[in-house]
Design a protein around this nucleic acid. Structure first.
Lengths: 237, 237
DNA sequence: ATAAATTATTGATATAGATCAATAAATATT
DNA sequence: AATATTTATTGATCTATATCAATAATTTAT
């Protein structure tokens, strides 16, 4: 049994691919589904396009149907902090359901070509307020989300760069590509943003991983040769 | 009007005193209130006592009625990360409402003597699932919480230590003591934990603030002489 | 195909803040 | 009141990682 002192319960990682596999819309009535249907538009985004801009009015909830989206906080001085990566099947913008939080608290940008349904936030809110089962599903989304981002926070504070970079590589392999061999679609700069470090450091650390035989690189393809050793680095920080 | 480029919307701080002033229980029926009443116990905690332990089963939701509580993530190597400070009127443990997240994802400890109502989580969950208005209030709590912790995350990543320490001092003054002159109940070590730095650095930076006339210290009393200058440091990082 | 622009790599240097160590002050204990 | 323990302060040193600068490789545009 899992207890407070087990390794498991004390392991956090900086990987934050939203992993909400339950379809929240399973819990709405046919009428509610139709109402959502009537009040949504489907939109496509090209790589690099902004899907939601921090500070702008949140008039809709975004349901990602394809592609990959990064959620990040930005500030005046152009520094950004990536909070999570959102694959299809997830919602963006539920933080603005509460009428007083009516602006997007962070930005969203397509990492790759993506598509999404934009659902009128008032309709969505109305259904949350009338359907407690649905509201409970939304609570689950919030809570899963929070745990992941707190874990990321912990790692960023307590692990050093090697650990964070190892985390991200494993995260991409496990959650995005579902393979230990994959073609990296991210630049060093993007990888650096994800791991919370400078692009130069990413280069140097990847080199070290390569020198130690943990990973191989062929062009844009990354092969994780020693996933377990990499995981050790990720755990020990 | 506030827009995406206003200073306001781009300012984050590492202060995370939960500020949920709406009473979530305003939205339950009399019967539900009675049910909660029947299924809760009131408990007192002394300074330093653990109120919830990361990894243990979450059998109840904690409603803080007095005192001040710190919420933190811990791991094997005794390093902790404070996520937030919780004053009276707030809930702890709602992350475990979802049946699959049935353990506390973080620990809670009393900073000062505190008291709380422990509400049976099953009863609480049942009411969330049957009362959509109440569920919506809980969503608001989640969302307010998330925004605060994301802001803290951003600061920890992007601001340097002076900014974070300034943040925390202002946060204590504004949100806990509601005065620019207050008796600090925290040790340097606790202040360091809150600001995400070493205790020695706290000492050195406080000294610098004193040398520059931003704050004064008389025994345990802190006087913020130049709140605006301190705020500048907090904003510029 | 060639030029321009972006991205990756490498090395040198700088630095914020941690850690270590030694004392001083304050608090708790006997 | 005297002693032990904890907390605060100060200085010296160390280190992880950023920043800067220069070149190489790759991608994009012409």
């Amino acid at each position: 049994m899992d207890n407070a002192f087990s390794e498991e319960s004390h392991t956090h990682n900086s990987c934050t691919v939203s992993q909400y596999h339950i379809n929240v819309f399973d819990h709405i009535t046919d009428d509610e589904a139709k109402e959502i249907e009537r009040n949504q538009v489907k939109v496509s985004f090209k790589k690099g396009e902004i899907i939601a801009k921090q500070g702008s009015f949140a008039s809709h909830i975004i349901y990602v149907t394809s592609g990959l989206i990064k959620i990040y906080i930005e500030s005046c001085n152009n520094e950004i902090l990536i909070l999570k990566i959102v694959p299809p099947g997830n919602l963006i913008g539920i933080n603005s359901l509460f009428e007083k939080n009516n602006v997007f608290p962070f930005s969203a940008m397509a990492y790759q070509d993506a598509s999404a349904k934009l659902i009128d936030i008032n309709v969505f809110r109305k259904i949350v307020k009338q359907n407690a089962e649905f509201a409970f599903q939304i609570i689950n989304v919030f809570s899963t989300n929070a745990l992941q981002i707190y874990g990321r926070f912990y790692c960023f504070e307590k692990k050093q760069s090697y650990g964070r970079l190892a985390d991200i590589i494993l995260c991409l392999a496990d959650n995005i590509y579902k393979s230990n061999e994959f073609e990296l679609f991210l630049t060093r700069k993007e990888l650096a943003e994800l791991a919370g470090m400078s692009p130069e450091s990413v280069v140097r650390m990847l080199k070290k991983f390569k020198d130690e035989g943990l990973i191989k690189e062929k062009g844009k393809t990354i092969i994780i040769s020693e996933p377990e050793k990499l995981r050790q680095i990720s755990i020990l920080g």
